[in-house]
Design a protein around this nucleic acid. Structure first.
Lengths: 216, 216
DNA sequence: AACAAAGTAGGTAGATTTACCTATTAAAAG
DNA sequence: CTTTTAATAGGTAAATCTACCTACTTTGTT
């Protein structure tokens, strides 16, 4: 019985890595890499001429990154299966990608067999999980900072606690925004309301407040 | 025996306060308010036509403030006696004014008799102190923050400690500069070296460092 | 005398924060 | 069902901070 091969697209700006990936996949007769792209923009240009079943998509890319591309794929081509590829094993990132509708998640230092398995499963069953992914999903994607016991200050929301904790780790608003997948303006909003609630003039006051109240 | 009256100039931007001062001084036949001015600039304009013995000089003024004026008086007219007037009882300020060569120091909420005594003494003996002034001078003008016992971090200079302590009180560089009577650029310089020494990315890191090491 | 360190202060440029707005959406509370 | 809250995000403008420089003076030390 003859089965149609799984048509695969590779999207990654690192050409060498892409080559390695192609090599690994070429072992399998039931896989066919139909095209490659340097970024999301190029991917969509080629997709117009070459339909695919599975996309292996790097998260970190210039021009149009993996997250942006994933969102557009889900919007325009809900039938395409997407495996996200990244160097960083972050619960927050995994959770976010899964919420955006990724079908699988792989670390870049995974061994070849796992990659093949991932493509196969995603092609057949529509989903592939590694243990760390399910762990991340179980944890709700992050270890949310919580108000310490016996805290009696002004009511600080969960999200504000998250932002406050990150501020105390010396991250700028922009960096915090990237970590939480929200706009920098939103982070500024949270920060503003934190300053209002704690009566601080600036970041320094906020940090001191956090220290006093055992948040850091 | 007839004595020449002490010729007095009043320099304060608050006209009402100036009026009250004049009233208080007019009680004494041996005092003569020869002119008034809204700021240091006006003072020098009038001084050209009217020599004075004692100037009562407000610290806080627009255009040309009391400190600037005091410096110029010391430079151009070392014989003129200057009594500085302010609302704030700050050791640092008192010390700084005395270093600049003020002959006396008065708070704005002093009672009238003290004011008259101050003018008399300054006119006759060239100096007038209240108890809080001598205390301030004895303390060296400020309670310098010092490195806590058992501190083993990078070597932080006295001045840097002062700046760090003020940063932790939520003051901006400009405000710190005003308090320490140095340029904001200098404060930035100290801050920079503090960040270098403590390996902080920003203010937040600096504050956390201060907290960890018991400086606040 | 030469050198190092601390304190001072300026220039320029860019990044970040702060201070005001407005506005939408979803969820919770009344 | 209306109201409130939390979370989202955008605009504009000014203030502040950060990151590079350079330079001078004073003090203390080889």
């Amino acid at each position: 019985m003859n089965v149609l091969p799984i048509r695969i697209a590779l999207v990654d700006d690192q050409k060498l890595f892409r080559g390695g990936l192609k090599m690994i996949l070429s072992d399998r007769p039931d896989f066919k890499v139909v095209f490659e792209a340097d970024n999301g923009k190029q991917f969509f240009e080629r997709l117009a001429f070459e339909p695919v079943d599975v996309v292996i998509l790097d998260v970190e890319m210039p021009v149009m990154d993996g997250i942006e591309t994933l969102e557009m794929i889900r919007d325009k081509h809900p039938d395409i299966r997407v495996i996200m590829l990244t160097m960083h094993d972050s619960d927050r990132l995994i959770n976010h990608l899964m919420q955006l509708g990724a079908n699988g998640f792989l670390l870049k230092d995974e061994n070849p067999e796992i990659v093949r398995t991932a493509v196969e499963r995603v092609g057949q069953e529509g989903i592939f999980f590694r243990d760390y992914v399910s762990k991340a999903l179980l944890k709700g994607g992050r270890q949310k900072p919580t108000k310490p016991e016996g805290y009696f200050g002004p009511n600080i929301s969960e999200r504000e606690m998250e932002v406050l904790a990150l501020i105390c780790q010396e991250f700028t608003s922009k960096e915090i925004a990237e970590k939480l997948f929200i706009s920098a303006r939103t982070v500024e909003g949270h920060r503003r309301s934190l300053q209002d609630k704690t009566g601080s003039r600036n970041l320094v006051g906020l940090v001191l407040y956090a220290v006093k109240n055992g948040i850091v």
